[in-house]
Amino acid sequence: MAGISFDDVTVTAEAAGGDVVILRHVSAELTERRVALIGGNGSGKSTLARLINGLVSASSGVVTVDGLDVSDEGPAVRRRVGFVFTQPAAQLVMPTVAEDIALSLRRLVPDKHERQQRVLSILDSYGLAHLAATSVHALSGGQQQLLALAGVLATEPSIVVADEPTTLLDLRNSVIVADRLFALEQQLVLVTHDLDLALRCERVLVIEDGAIAFDGEPAAAVDHYRRSVATP
């Protein structure tokens, strides 16, 4: 039961004027190593991604990761699923670069001294070692996103979900972050507006109005998405 499975998942959210449906009766099995979710703003693709680690709970239906029900085994699922967010600054929670990585390692490496060594070697592999004592707010957006990625991967997840990780970055930094993501051993679920990135995946889901509008080959999916935007 490796991989991610959505079984008839519906998500509704409270809003001022009553509940709104964000995802309706979505079913899918994601086992490919590189999966992209594309679609317009507000289509529900971020919510679909957030279901995978329990950031959003399904109102009905079942989400499982490697056979584990996300709603029953949240902590176990979150140890498997790493999540990279769009906004680099909001996911850095500790004052300095080294402390932020150390926070991720709290569970994995209980010994303080050993943890410090691990932090430095991780930072070194991202070319951030010289910034260990720097405030996370003094970093550029690209460096922040790399650090966030390093913090997520430090927990050694088996699946990485990234919600528009390159949207706020310049071209150069987008390329750096994207190359890091595509070099991962792990399964990658990538929410993106960057169609070039979608084309690098093995499978692409087009989300429209809370449902899967197309699911299949990247080239065909991107083509479907382009046409759905062109014709009103």
């Binding site: 998500v11 409270e14 957030r50 329990g54 959003v56 949240g74």
Partner: peptide, 12 residues
Amino acid sequence: MTSTDSSRATTV
């Protein structure tokens, strides 16, 4: 932002 939907204790 829909990340507030989860009602489990850890989220809160």
